[in-house]
Design a protein around this nucleic acid. Structure first.
Length: 802
DNA sequence: AGCACGCCGACT
DNA sequence: GTCGGCGTGCTC
């Protein structure tokens, strides 16, 4: 019997199955999806069995045998095995990367090498003997000097010692030590044999006789008997009890918030939308729905009811939410509705906790998973529905290999199971809406809010005008007035600062020098908490200079607006206001996110001030005012999605106000009030925005009219990167059709990051039959030749930004 | 990716 | 003369 194995080595010539002999003892157990330890070259690696066969073309003398099985049951189902192959092709990545991304990080292999002494007599080297200290097995990494490694090499070739590789999972699986007590007759025998001064052991065995045959966790046994661990150990050695280790789950912190929306009657729109989804669930035919509903229209309630139907059919549900929206508020609604049937997967869980959740899914102990992007690979075996909430979010696209989009994977999995995919959003991506318009997806619309509240009144404030009136503060007069009113009446406020591309930088007022990162072509960002300047690209940090590094002037200070600075100004303007600041700095700590939100929901603050992370999903009855401090900051990014992102953000954040009884009000401050993205966000008019933006995309040849692929090059040497970028672009031009636009090579927007110069080449095409093949050839060229010269090249099909 | 094999300069 | 530098080539 021969097994086809994909080995855990990400390299170009290795990216294919290797054949191994299956030892007879393994034949009845082995099947595709099981992991194995195999010899590869002169080392041992982990591999995934992808197929079983009886013949091979490989010469017999070349074939090796599988060393051992890592799993007894497949960890990758046949469905996911096929999906990984598809994923590798789609994203132009190694098959091993596509496989690994499907499993929790804790299951990734870790390699440890040990020296085993075979012939003790012949070990004479003093340094080596010193390393052994009498042991017969020593971790190889303890040998850290060159001379020792040399001795090891010699001893290995003389077969005095061998080097053994242990393949194991990264994080130990949490196990609980269980103690099973023997039967009474045996205990009596042991009791007799005890020495008279072993009083504690005598006591423990008598205690055990009362509980013969029972099993305890070692912890509870020690507590209940009041005996020390040392005594227990001796008693176990005498054979009075067995130890066994049982895999146990960690219990992730229980969310503290209740389901705020008790099941209510559905609106007519909701009934219609749910009806379409239900009939798809029943039909067993894959169908993709775009659920377009204004903020507060009750999309989540539709998800919950659709999932209920799926569970009643005996099937499972996958719910994806953007990481940032994976708040306790969101997950607790699912937990409240489906209780212990829900597994939650988010980045705040430890590697071990993620593994536990994964196991619960795999064992079929849960039926619903709510999670971020990677939860799309949940190891369910009978998926009945897949939901992507806020489907337009860029976080659904993975930034490193395999660069997959969760939406594409969802649709692929749904095809296999013949089940519906629900893409939900108040502001769908243009791609999805275009597909819905063309009938590729089924469009479901919710025009009204579930509790029939009016959408909040949105006012656009022209900050240029404020400036003209002499108001140099970051709060317009109207917004300041509205804030004051809310503080007085005890209502709550959300202030949103879209900091991206608009962070606090340090500028010399005499010579105009901006302090830049020494490794990247970008200005450094001022961080108040640490009083340091940081680079957001490479992580470089330095102290804030007191003098200008160029002209030594002392007139150097920071400009721009960060949340910390806004917080200061709020305290100055509204001394009585209680402010909670939520950004990367205040939420880094585990659980900080939840704590801040809980404080806010309990009314312990008047103002919640934050960045992107407060724009989504929050639902608090007392919020009646939302202020956007500077709406334009996303607008000026050099990206084709800039307007779309701005519109989405404005709509999302506005939707936080007035979701319950109290009416909401929104102020959007901007320096470009005439821009269509801002004007149309005012009324949450998606349709006109869509039409306007589509016209722009058509004109400039961007998605969804054209597909794009981005090829990026980086190198320490500017001349070399320009040269390779030119070569790569030429290769693409020579091999792709004439209708494909090939733009570049051009220097990237941030032309140097971490001391590497960056170039890129952009492909735009409607139909390019040669695309995959040409890109594969380009990658081959890179991986076999160019990579040696220090070039790094990445290819991203359909990037989220360029 | 690793790791060994293999061919040329500086040391006991 | 050997030790060791890292260029080249292979992994079922």
């Amino acid at each position: 019997m021969i097994a086809k194995v994909i080995v855990d080595v990400a390299a170009y010539p290795i990216d294919r199955p290797f054949d191994y002999i299956v030892p007879v003892a393994m034949e009845s157990i082995i099947e595709p999806g099981i992991r194995v330890k195999v010899p590869f070259g002169n080392r041992k690696v982990l591999g995934y069995v992808t197929g079983i066969k009886n013949e091979t073309d490989i010469a017999i003398d070349k074939l090796k045998s599988i060393d051992e099985l890592i799993d007894l049951d497949p960890v990758i189902s046949s469905e996911l095995l096929d999906l990984s192959r598809w994923l590798a092709v789609q994203t132009l990545s190694y098959e091993i990367d596509a496989l690994q991304v499907m499993l929790p990080a804790a299951m990734r292999a870790k390699y440890e090498k040990y020296i085993d002494v075979v012939d003790q007599e012949k070990v004479v080297d003093e340094e080596f003997l010193n390393l052994l200290k009498g042991r017969k097995r020593v971790p190889l990494k303890e040998a850290d000097t060159a001379s020792l490694l040399k001795v090891i090499k010699n001893y290995t070739s003389e077969k005095i010692i061998t080097v053994d590789t242990i393949v194991r999972q990264q994080t130990a699986i949490k196990k609980v030590r269980m103690i099973r007590i023997e039967e009474a007759p045996k205990l009596h025998v042991i009791l007799e044999s005890l020495h008279s001064n072993a009083k504690k052991q005598f006591e423990l065995i008598q205690w055990m006789i009362q509980r013969e045959g029972q099993t305890f966790t070692s912890k509870s046994l020690l507590e209940q008997s009041g005996i020390s661990p040392a005594t227990l150990k001796s008693v176990i050695e005498r054979g009075a009890a067995f130890e066994e280790y049982v895999e146990s789950y960690r219990e992730p912190e229980a969310p503290g918030m209740k389901d705020v929306a008790i099941p209510v009657d559905l609106t007519e729109e909701q009934v219609v939308a749910l009806g379409h989804i239900s009939s798809s669930v029943k039909s067993g035919v894959a169908e993709t729905f775009l659920l377009h509903g204004v903020t507060g229209s009750g999309k989540t309630e539709i998800y919950l009811r659709a999932i209920k139907e799926v569970l009643e059919k005996g099937q499972e549900a996958i719910v994806l939410v953007p990481e940032i929206a994976l708040t306790p508020q969101m997950t607790s609604r699912f937990k409240a509705r489906f209780g212990p049937l829900v597994a939650v997967m988010h980045s705040a869980l430890s590697a071990g906790e993620k593994y536990d959740e994964w196991r619960k899914i795999q064992r079929g102990e849960v039926k619903v998973v709510v999670g971020a992007r990677s939860a799309i690979f949940a190891p369910f075996k009978n998926v009945g529905i897949i939901i992507l909430d806020e489907e337009h979010e860029a976080t659904y696209k993975q930034e490193d290999t395999p660069r997959y989009h969760a939406r594409d994977v969802a649709i692929k999995r749904a095809e296999y199971y013949g089940c519906p995919v629900i893409l939900g959003s108040a502001t769908p991506s243009l791609e999805s809406y275009a597909r819905a318009s063309k009938g590729v997806y089924t469009l479901l619309t919710l025009m009204n809010r579930a509790r029939n509240q009016a959408l909040p009144a949105v006012e656009i404030v022209d900050m240029r005008e404020e400036l003209r009136l002499g108001n140099r503060s970051m709060f317009s007069l109207d917004l300041a007035e509205a804030i004051r009113k809310r503080i007085d009446s005890g209502e709550q406020i959300i202030l949103f600062l879209n900091r991206r591309g608009f962070s606090a930088f340090v500028l010399c007022r005499d010579c105009g020098t901006v302090v830049e990162c020494p490794n990247c072509d970008i200005s450094l960002t001022y961080h108040r908490a640490s009083e340091r300047l940081k680079c957001h690209y490479c992580g470089h940090e330095e102290i804030v200079p007191l003098k200008c590094p160029e002209c030594t002037s002392e007139h150097i200070r920071f400009f721009g607006t960060g949340t910390q600075k806004v917080e200061e100004e709020i305290t100055k303007l509204f001394p009585t206001a209680r402010v909670l600041r939520m950004d990367v700095d205040t939420t880094r700590q585990k659980g900080a996110h939840e704590r801040l939100l809980r404080q806010f929901s309990e009314g312990k603050a008047d103002i919640l001030l934050g960045t992107q992370m407060i724009a989504k999903g929050l639902d608090f009855p007392n919020i009646t005012l939302v202020g956007v401090l500077a709406a334009d900051t996303t607008l000026h990014l050099s990206d084709f999605r800039a307007a779309e992102k701005t519109f989405q953000l404005m709509t999302q954040v506005s939707g936080r106000a007035g979701r319950h009884e109290l009416p909401g009000e929104v102020f959007i401050q901007t320096y470009t009030p005439e821009h269509y993205a801002i004007q149309l966000a005012k009324e949450q008019h998606y349709e006109p925005f869509y039409k306007h933006e589509m016209a722009a995309r058509r004109q400039f040849g961007y998605p969804p009219f054209y597909f794009v692929t981005l090829v990026q090059f980086s190198h320490e040497d500017l001349l070399k990167v320009a040269d390779f970028a030119e070569k790569g672009t030429r290769f693409l031009k020579d091999n792709l059709s004439i209708d494909t636009q090939i733009i570049g090579p051009t220097a990237a927007a941030v032309s140097r990051v971490n001391n590497r110069y960056r170039y890129q080449c952009l492909l735009k095409y409607k139909k390019e039959p040669m695309l995959t093949e040409t890109l594969q050839q380009l990658i081959k060229l890179y991986r076999t030749k160019w990579i040696k010269s220090g070039l790094i090249m990445t290819v991203e099909v359909e990037p989220m930004s360029i």
